[in-house]
């Protein structure tokens, strides 16, 4: 029986104990690129909440 890609994904999610259809995973290159960008933005938002004193320098050292 030939399954469409989305049907296979639903079956896989069900086999893995996950609720299918609650949130479908991104699959096309465009969708995955947008996912990557959203993740980068949410990472930035989370990091921006950290109070960062001006005197704190990055965790690497350059020595001449």
């Amino acid at each position: 029986m030939k399954l469409k890609r989305r049907e296979m994904l639903v079956a896989a999610l069900a086999a893995g104990g996950m609720k299918a259809g609650a949130q479908e995973l991104e699959t096309s290159p465009g969708e995955l690129t947008e996912l990557a960008r959203r993740t980068m933005k949410s990472n930035r938002d989370a990091i921006d909440k950290v109070k960062l004193p001006m005197a704190v320098e990055p965790a690497f050292a350059f020595k001449a």
Binding site: A36, L52, V56, E57, P58
Partner: peptide
């Protein structure tokens, strides 16, 4: 997709992460 998008990360964001890392 992740590797391609990683090129859009700004220096500001990377450096901020590295500064928080010192903390």
């Amino acid at each position: 997709a992740g590797l391609k998008a990683a090129g859009e990360l700004t220096a500001r964001d990377y450096l901020k992460a590295m500064r928080v890392r010192s903390m």
